[in-house]
Nucleic acid binder design. Structure first.
Ligand SMILES: NC(=O)c1ccc[n+]([C@@H]2O[C@H](COP(=O)([O-])OP(=O)(O)OC[C@H]3O[C@@H](n4cnc5c(N)ncnc54)[C@H](O)[C@@H]3O)[C@@H](O)[C@H]2O)c1
Ligand SMILES: NC(=O)c1ccc[n+]([C@@H]2O[C@H](COP(=O)([O-])OP(=O)(O)OC[C@H]3O[C@@H](n4cnc5c(N)ncnc54)[C@H](O)[C@@H]3O)[C@@H](O)[C@H]2O)c1
Lengths: 216, 216
DNA sequence: TTGTATTCGTGACTCATTTCACAAGGACCC
DNA sequence: GGGTCCTTGTGAAATGAGTCACGAATACAA
């Protein structure tokens, strides 16, 4: 346990271990080896051990890692002990799909509201989640204790809304728009750009690159 | 120009530069400095120059990089000279949202078909794109010359369908399911897992990590 | 209890990526 | 045509990530 700085790619791997551990826990498995964890997370056994050893000694030599305690430890490390309260901004095609995504809840993220400008949508419920007016963004975020936002509005208003979210005290934004958001102190931002991923595929294919598996 | 091996994170940055260059080209800008490119792609000027120098000398000292030629060069490097023919497998909530995503075309990816099991959907068109039976997956992929697939089916059938896609000759899969797909020779796979990104946000927030901007 | 087979934890090493610093090359003004 | 800015291109240095090998600890069988 040497408490190095935790890199982004390592956090990504921890997520992968956690996913696998949840699955194993549901199956009733008691212990799992670094090798098995590595296979599912597309890495090596040594890497798994090194990653986990950053936080303490959870394994038992000769046996492996106890599934449930290790899962709970990762939940703690990743900050998922209690669910995060989140909203979706932009209840369009993509936003609506996300509102119906049941895995959010299972993974510790609770979507408590959506926001939109469209008067047709405001006041309705989509997948059981209320669509609120974008005008009330700041007040609703405060009263409902919303900490995270998923941004699925068009390019035009994206920057402005991100600023308003930051201003209203949101701690993190998951950005699905192709707009690059300005970093704001106190607000973490992560972008999911489909085109970037597709272009990555394209590059690998034309350069004859086999290496199939990065993410899932 | 030293022709090192191109890393994954570098390809990601190249995508970022390309996005910005497309935007600047549309605005009519003639030249751009490494500094400006760096600001938008959340990196440093030196990094931009080093990245680009892998492929040749495109810049003019004292002036910067000519926007349109550099854009075209990146298009070539990333393998985007002609559009890729793609399909969406699983025309559910997420799949439907993706079928309506107009930016695909602009970025060089043409969605020519969707596949599903649901008899209600098969034969219909969604957003102008025909929904075909999953039973005809192999034959349709061959006759329509489909090269890429976006996978948006439930967890259950995901692995099996990925195998069928690989068998049918698809060159790349963009996987939105939480299922980890087995790497297959000749098929590049890239996963987009929302939960992984949200967990990354969660981690950064609880550890007090400011560093706002990775992706968009 | 002893021996053998496992599997973790970890320091040393290797390899990859990023940053730094600056010379080289061109633009532009006078 | 000479001087002055700028900004690129690039080796060298610094930093960081991932791999290896092996000792320590444990399980289990005989
Ligand atoms: N559709 C996809 O599959 C997809 C995939 C990846 C990324 N994206 C990105 O996600 C974003 C949304 O895409 P979409 O296809 O869902 O578009 P959409 O037009 O279907 O939905 C956008 C929604 O945002 C709302 N909106 C517009 N301005 C707003 C404002 N100022 N405040 C609040 N809400 C506002 C609209 O009323 C609409 O409901 C776009 O930036 C797009 O590039 C979409
Ligand atoms: N909804 C989201 O916002 C979201 C976000 C991220 C990831 N995902 C993932 O994307 C996948 C789809 O999610 P969804 O919400 O769109 O689910 P959905 O149930 O709305 O859609 C799934 C579609 O796949 C079709 N399907 C089922 N079995 C099939 C088969 N064997 N062959 C072809 N088609 C088949 C179904 O008929 C349905 O139309 C899931 O794996 C989910 O975890 C969804």
């Amino acid at each position: 346990m040497s408490t190095r700085k935790i890199s982004d790619s390592m956090v990504r791997r921890l997520s992968g271990y956690l996913r696998q551990l949840r699955f194993l826990a549901a199956e009733g498995r008691r212990v799992v080896s670094s090798q098995e964890l590595a296979d599912e997370a597309a890495t090596t056994a040594a890497q798994v051990r090194k990653d986990l050893s950053q936080f303490g000694s959870f394994g038992q030599r000769g046996r492996g890692y106890p599934v449930v305690p290790l899962r709970d430890e990762l939940v703690r490390i990743l900050g998922l002990r209690r669910p995060w309260r989140a909203c979706v901004v932009g209840a369009g095609r993509l936003g609506t799909a996300l509102l119906g995504y049941e895995d959010f809840g299972k993974r510790g993220f609770e979507i408590v509201a959506a926001f939109d400008v469209d008067p047709e949508l405001i006041g309705k419920e989509v997948e059981g989640i209320p669509v609120l007016s974008i005008e009330d963004l700041e007040s609703e975020i405060r009263t409902r204790g919303i900490e995270l936002a998923v941004l699925t509005v068009p390019h035009g208003p994206a920057r402005r809304i991100a600023d308003r979210l930051a201003e209203a005290g949101v701690r993190g934004i998951l950005n699905f728009t192709p707009t690059r958001l300005r970093a704001r102190p106190g607000v973490s931002i992560r972008g999911m750009d489909i085109a970037v991923e597709l272009e990555g595929l394209s590059y690998r294919i034309v350069t004859g690159g086999e290496p199939g598996g990065n993410g899932a």
